[in-house]
Design a protein around this nucleic acid. Structure first.
Length: 921
RNA sequence: GCGGAUAUGACGUAAUUGGUAGCCGUACUAGAUUUAGGAUCUAGUGUCGAAAGGCGUGUGGGUUCGAGUCCCUCUAUCCGCACCA
């Protein structure tokens, strides 16, 4: 019987479902292993061959771990809230829930065809009220918590209220939006509303007027990771900075722990580096500069990492948005300052990035250098960022390229501070050299000077030593429909949380999904929607809300009493292996870690880090094909002849191209306009051009896994995607090689079939056959453990080639082989396993052990080299006495030919093998 | 500008981690079989050379008996951050 993959795959997929083969429960008798894929957003386009790459890898690993005796949790679900479904709803009027359900169904069908071992009983959907109840619940917990910097921990806000009532803000070190100071008496005298406003300053989920990324075209604000180069990641619309009252999460409070945690997890260096950059820790000092003339004793605080360069400060610079501007600007300069600020406000961030023109205005005010006592002018310029540090800097043009450019432009003085540096053309930014012109710092090296200057600052109370982070709080509200509603209502203009036992707050029906350009959320259209007569929050939560704790929900997905039960969490703990793309490095993977740490602080979860090991699969790119139309005609010229004509390059559907040869008949049928197309061929064929680019519908290079499954089967697709190259590398999809992998499966099948009948022998295997088997077990096992799935596939091919040469169809070889193949090609393995007489699923088998003794060679062909150059080989038994080998080698006529008059210097022996014989010259 | 990664036949890749470079698969060549093949099987395939042999892992150098692998230089490509003081 030929290898009928369609019949086999259908049969076993049905069997697995009917017998609940992949259902997982807590089992204290086995060690747990949690394998997680980044759950997909179910888009309307369905899956292409690139999507399952990571799922296949994680499935192989899950199946392997199961065979190794682990209790494996391997769930799947959908990140179902989000913009595309909503955009589609706006266009068609169709409710996003309907399109989302439809897409989910399609995804599920496609995934099932690939033979994954997901436990579907644990499926989660972020848009389901049973799920988002817990997203809302976590939000309330954040609303009801503050962050204590001393304890480095989130704590209940009720505790903070008590502290305020007892001793005010004295000796507190809290994460906050703004430093506040009050006494216990003052606290008690505040009104309810005033107290709520103060608490808002400390809540981990807080409402505040903040500068946000406003995207008018999407009608919503966006988080920093959703904006690239001043454009929205989704849609590419311009984004401007606006002050709006928005919910935020105090992620910045966790900056140091997010940084430290990276040292404890097995992630790739590059993604850890990306997160380190994003968190952006920098050590420095905040220095106070007195204003001159001394207006109401206020001082200007700046942040710097280069306290050593303070003697070179020749001006100060403020961000245009800075609160200092109003305090510093003199009446004479006021109109110029106002004009400048109005001009910068008009420019979007994108414009500011696009043309970095140097601009600025003198404020009229001065500051006093606390080290030298000198008076320096205060300028206002948009090269200073309002959002970083204090929004004000001390400018040292000699040693900072931005300050240098500004000083040159406005003719401000430049004082070099490092011996021998030349600042006539550019600044000297390097942190090396000996200090000059720097008072008591003269003669020190830069690192010494930084240290000494910092000591001087704290000893003389000129400022504080401080660590700054680039990481911002996450803006958490979106003026959109298709997201989690906030469990918040307003009383007296202040937000209050809905009681936990009244969750979830259901997403209401509305007649139109469109947001307004001014930022009125669509939930405002819902009728009769109040909480005990009080208005609800109308914003919804962003996409990352639902994906931040989904890995916890899988542990206990049907629990209505808790996000996850204590028992389930203590058993499953954390994700052992997380597989997904790098695109979430500064979004989901930061937010999830933050969310988890917050829940850890509250004692809800037992692990500090959610994802122990992270593997980033590469992208599978498309391989586009082109045809060349002669301009102004409907004639197409083959690739090799195209330069003789003026042609236009057009994308052509890769599914009607084979090995770069166009199927001319199908091309004519592809689009009506090509029906009458004519062709100029070379050697009777039409050759297409090609290139590698993103796999996308519009480029006609999408390969649908369903098509591959029909022609080759899911097992071939799985093996082939792994065989394509290392998992973490991006690579183009190229259907050319798939035949080779398919051939391997057929060969394997035929090995155990005689004509149409299954045929295996009960004979005992020979030493040679056992060696092949054990070699393969060993190789496959170590390859899976190091995620080198491509080389394991090669190992299988070699194994089958060798067994075919020996015509070995023995049961004792077949059974272990099918087991180790089953993670890769579960259907064919299961079929052969049953044909061999096993009644239970191969999933219940255990991964065979290998015997190293069977692998040891009893002789070895030693390379005999002279001064590094291999000249010939000699065969010796493995455990031969080195002295004996030496004797035989030196006596060998071939050796003597090379030795001539030279002396034998030494014999290099590695692991009992002669590697080289060295002669003196 | 700062940081990370990568570079091996015509192509995708492999190399016991410092020890016979090119496994496996494509593609290609020749042959067998078949009514036919986009099926199957056999042999060959880094490069120069008739052969002996030489040369070969982006560039140039170094360490070593021995380097794709370790160190330094340069080049190219990809990725992250970027007016972050």
């Amino acid at each position: 019987m030929e290898y009928n993959f369609l019949r086999i795959e259908e049969k076993w997929q049905k069997y697995w479902i009917q017998n609940n083969i992949y259902k997982t429960d807590i089992d204290a008798s086995k060690p747990k292993y949690y394998v997680l894929d980044m759950f997909p957003y179910p888009s309307g386009a369905g899956l292409h061959v690139g999507h399952p790459l990571g799922y296949i890898a994680s499935d192989i690993y899950s199946r392997y771990k199961t065979l190794r005796g682990f209790n494996v949790l391997h769930p799947m679900g959908y990140d179902a809230f989000g913009l595309p479904a909503e955009q589609y709803a706006i266009e068609t009027g169709q409710h996003p829930e309907i399109t989302t359900e439809k897409n989910i169904k399609r995804y599920r069908e496609q995934l099932n065809k690939l033979g994954f071992s997901f436990d579907w009983s644990r499926e989660v959907k972020t848009c389901s009220p049973h799920y988002y109840k817990w997203t809302q619940w976590a939000f309330i917990k954040m609303f009801d918590s503050y962050y204590c910097n001393q304890a480095q921990q989130a704590r209940p806000i009720s505790e903070l209220i008590e502290i305020f009532a007892q001793k005010g803000t004295q000796n507190l070190n809290l994460a906050c939006s703004k430093e506040l100071h009050f006494t216990a008496e003052e606290w008690q005298a505040y009104s309810e509303k005033e107290q709520q406003e103060i608490l808002m300053n400390y809540r981990i989920a807080y409402l505040a007027d903040t500068m946000v990324n406003w995207c008018a075209d999407l009608g919503t604000v966006l988080a920093n990771d959703e904006v690239v180069n001043g454009l929205s990641v989704r849609g590419g619309y311009p984004v401007e900075q606006r002050k709006m009252r928005q919910w935020s999460l105090r992620v910045s409070a966790y900056a140091q722990r997010l940084l430290d945690g990276l040292e404890t997890i097995e992630w790739s260096e590059s993604i850890k580096e990306t997160q380190k950059n994003w968190i952006g820790r920098s050590e420095g000092a905040e220095i106070k500069f007195q204003l001159h003339p001394n207006t109401d004793a206020d001082s200007l605080v700046v942040f710097t990492t280069r306290a050593d360069t303070i003697f070179g400060v020749t001006f100060m610079a403020l961000a245009p948005e800075s609160e200092y501007v109003a305090k510093v600007a003199t009446p004479e300069q006021k109109s110029a300052v106002d004009e400048y600020i109005a001009a910068t406000r008009k420019r979007t961030e994108r414009e500011r990035i696009a043309d970095r023109k140097i601009s600025g205005v003198f404020s009229g005010g001065y500051a006093i250098n606390p080290f030298s006592g000198e008076k320096v002018p205060i300028w206002i310029s948009d090269y200073v960022l309002a959002g970083y540090g204090t929004g004000a800097i001390m400018a040292v043009p000699a040693h900072d390229s931005r300050d240098y450019a500004f000083a040159k432009h406005f003719g401000l003085p430049i004082i070099p501070l490092i011996e021998g540096c030349d600042v006539s053309d550019e600044s000297f930014d390097a942190k090396e050299g000996i200090m000059i012109n720097s008072g008591f710092l003269n003669g020190l090296t830069v690192p010494e000077a930084i240290k000494k200057a910092k000591e001087y600052i704290s000893d003389n109370a000129l400022g504080v030593i401080k660590v700054n982070y680039r990481l911002r709080d996450a803006i958490f509200s979106r003026q959109r429909y298709w997201g989690e509603p906030f469990p918040i209502y307003y009383k007296d203009g202040m937000p209050y949380a809905i009681p936990e036992d009244e969750l979830p707050v259901i997403l209401p029906e509305v007649d139109k999904f469109l947001p307004t350009e001014t930022g009125e959320p669509p939930l405002g259209r819902a009728k009769n929607r109040t909480y005990k007569g009080l208005p609800f929050e109308l914003n919804t939560m962003p996409g990352f809300a639902g994906s931040s704790a989904y890995y916890l929900r899988y542990m206990d997905p049907h629990n209505e009493e808790a996000l996850v039960s204590k028992d389930a969490n203590e058993y499953w703990r954390d994700v052992d292996l997380y597989v997904g793309g790098t695109e979430h490095a500064t979004g989901h993977l930061i937010y999830s870690r933050f969310w988890n740490k917050f829940l850890y602080d509250l004692g809800i979860v037992v692990e500090q880090e959610p994802f122990k090991k992270l593997v980033n699969q590469g992208m599978i790119q498309g391989c586009s094909s082109f045809v060349y139309r002669i301009n102004g005609t409907n004639t197409f010229v083959s690739y090799g002849l195209k330069d003789k004509y003026a042609t236009t390059e057009l994308h052509v559907d890769v599914n009607i191209v084979n090995n770069n040869i166009l199927d001319v008949k199908r091309f004519k049928m592809w689009k009506p306009e090509y029906e009458t197309a004519e062709f100029i061929l070379e050697n009777g064929e039409y050759r297409c051009g090609w290139c590698v680019e993103k796999m996308s519908k519009s480029l006609y290079n999408v390969v649908n896994p369903d098509d591959i499954v029909v022609t080759y089967g899911a097992d071939t697709l799985r093996l082939y995607e792994m065989f394509l190259g290392p998992l973490e590398q991006s690579k183009p999809w190229d259907t050319k090689g798939i035949d080779g992998v398919h051939r391997f499966l057929r060969k394997f099948w035929r090995l155990f079939h005689h004509g149409d009948t299954f045929y295996i022998s009960d004979e005992a295997p020979t030493a040679a056959e056992l060696k092949i088997l054990h070699k393969t077990i060993k190789k496959v096992r170590s390859d899976i453990e190091s995620f080198s799935f491509n080389t394991s596939v090669s190992a299988f091919m070699i194994c089958v080639n060798e067994l075919t040469d020996l015509k070995c169809n023995k049961k004792a070889i077949l059974e272990p082989l099918t087991i180790i193949l089953s993670p890769f090609a579960p259907h064919i393995a299961e079929e052969l396993w049953h044909l061999a007489g096993n009644a239970t699923s191969i999933v219940k088998a255990s991964f065979p052990e290998y015997d190293d003794n069977l692998l040891i060679e009893n002789s070895f062909e030693y390379p005999i080299s002279f001064n590094g150059k291999t000249r010939f080989k000699m065969e010796f038994p493995l455990d031969a006495d080195p002295e004996l080998i030496k004797e035989r080698v030196t006596a060998d006529p071939q050796t003597q030919k090379f030795m001539s008059d030279k002396q034998l210097k030494k014999i290099i022996v590695v692991k009992g093998k002669i590697i080289n014989i060295v002669l003196s010259n």
